[in-house]
Amino acid sequence: MKKTYVSMQLNGEPVEFLAEPSQTLLECLRDTLHLTGTKEGCGDGNCGSCCVMLDGTLVTSCLVLGVEAEGRTVTTIEGIAAGQKLHPLQKAFIDHAALQCGICTPGFIVAAKALLDQEPDPSEERIRLWLANNLCRCTGYDKIVRAVQAAAKEIREEKQA
């Protein structure tokens, strides 16, 4: 089958690529654009390791077709840090030992950022509800919740300063 031409904004830069009609955005990111920070844990929307932002909305990229990204804006884990400076969530995940194997980490960070961008001071319950589509098999989630809380606090303090 013929491939389709797709152009989109990816982590602030324009990119162009060819997508097979059945290729998911996740496959296009990983296999075609070689951005492998976004992970595939299930391929059917049930683990959250493929989370990206699509036009400012959190999506599981395994459930989006590559061709659907035409003309849209995509942010992946590779677009979260500001140059050399880690995002507070990234730093908090390291400092609070919120990752063990780390395979779920990109998805959690992208998803948690989507929450904190809208809600600077979420409760523990709200954090758990928001992240309920992201599976982690290693940590038992305790340190992930604490890392998100710590990052939220830091972002709030940064804003005030």
Binding site: R30, L35, T36, E78, F93, I94, G102
Partner: peptide
Amino acid sequence: TRPPRHDGADKVTGRAIYAADFQ
């Protein structure tokens, strides 16, 4: 003590190469 892990930056930025990422 509780120092940050050496592979932390790679793993929170998506740079760490897992098996399916290998090209």
